[in-house]
Amino acid sequence: MSTPTAKGLHKPTLVIGIALFALAFITWRDASAMQIRATYGMGADAASYFVALFLAVMGAGHLVAAFRWQDDPGPTDWKAVGWVALGLASLIAALWFGAGFIAGSTLLFVFTARAFGRRAWLADLALGFVLSLGIFLLFNKLLTLSLPMGPLERLF
């Protein structure tokens, strides 16, 4: 699955190391800005400082590791990842703009199926719709739990 690369700087590891340092810095800044002190014992900042230090040590470890042998992730189908991401984004957008749960979930279903190589849009659309409608009816009517409403949901 993974193929070893030649000796040299391993970029992903380096980037992760730098990200860990950034996270540690943010945490440290956040901790030093805390105003509420504990009257007795340790304050809320102690854990933050501990985690910041922990992450910084991990960051340093990654910087060292970046110069060693590393496995590279195998080939990646970025298009498929993109389709799934589009599906998730559609669901978020559908809820954000009030299009409702059924519309959002149907799109999520269709785009995810596309990511795994399906091209029968209409069939998937129908299947996704039936599934989402079923979930909606189950939750809102039987279990009286409110999934986000949109124009479609108000029909029921």
Partner: peptide, 21 residues
């Protein structure tokens, strides 16, 4: 596979929104 994962994603997202809309 396409339907299995599409279904998993729909149910997973639904579970999260149902608990906290």
């Amino acid at each position: 596979l396409p339907w299995l994962y599409a279904g998993i994603l729909v149910f997973a997202c639904m579970g999260t929104i149902a608990a906290n809309p």
